[in-house]
C-alpha cells in the first residue's frame, strides 16, 4: 500500500491505506474525525463536504491515492468554539434541526465565502445546491449565509 502525507486541519498526517478508500472514510474511520458525515457515497447529497486546498469537495468522491500533499479542512478545523463567522451566523439564525447535514452545509458556505465574500444569490444557489437537507433548513441556511456576509463585510470577522 502506498503511503500518503497530507495536512488535515493544519496537522501533518501520514497514512498507509488502499488507493481507493475515499477521503470521507479516511477522516471518519482512520482519523476519527466524525464531524464529517456519510449520506450517499456517490456525490449526490454533499453532507460529506470538506475543503480540499480551499475548495468545497464531496469527500466521498476523493480517493486516498489523490491525497499526497493536499490540505484538508473539516468542520473540526473551522473552529471548535463556533467563532467562525459562518458558524456564528448559523447559530444566530437557528439553522440546525436534526443537524446531520449541517457540517456539510457549513463547509460549503464557508468555502464559497472564502472565495467570494460578496457572493450573489445565484452564486449562493449554485454552491448550496450541492448539499441536501431532508429537515428543510434551506431558508435559514440562506439567511445565515447573508448574515455571515454582513459579519464579514461590516464587522470584519475573519474567515
Amino acid at each position: 500500500m502506498p503511503k500518503k502525507s497530507f495536512q488535515v486541519n493544519g496537522k501533518e498526517v501520514t497514512l498507509d491505506l488502499p488507493n481507493d478508500i475515499p477521503l470521507l472514510w479516511v477522516l471518519r474511520d482512520h482519523l476519527k474525525l466524525l464531524g464529517t458525515k456519510y449520506g450517499c457515497g456517490i456525490g449526490q447529497c454533499g453532507v460529506c463536504t470538506v475543503h480540499l486546498n480551499g475548495e468545497a469537495i464531496q469527500s466521498c468522491l476523493i480517493p486516498f491515492s489523490s491525497l499526497d500533499g493536499v490540505n484538508v479542512t473539516t468542520i473540526e478545523g473551522l473552529s471548535s468554539d463556533n467563532s467562525h463567522p459562518v458558524q456564528k451566523a448559523w447559530l444566530e439564525e437557528s439553522v440546525p434541526q436534526c443537524g446531520y447535514c449541517q457540517s456539510g452545509q457549513i463547509m460549503a458556505a464557508a468555502a464559497l465565502l472564502y472565495k467570494n465574500p460578496s457572493a450573489t444569490p445565484s452564486q449562493i444557489e449554485q454552491a448550496m445546491d450541492k448539499v441536501l437537507c431532508r429537515c428543510g433548513t434551506y431558508q435559514r441556511i440562506n439567511n445565515a449565509i447573508k448574515k455571515a456576509q454582513t459579519l464579514i463585510s461590516m464587522k470584519g470577522d475573519a474567515l
Binding site: L34, G99, Y100
Partner: peptide
Amino acid sequence: KPIPRLDSPIKVNGKAKFGNDIL
C-alpha cells in the same frame, strides 16, 4: 419566546454524536 435550541452549538461545530458516531 423564541429560545435558541440547546443542541445548536454541537450541531454547528461537528461535535454532535449521532448513532453512527459511537466509537
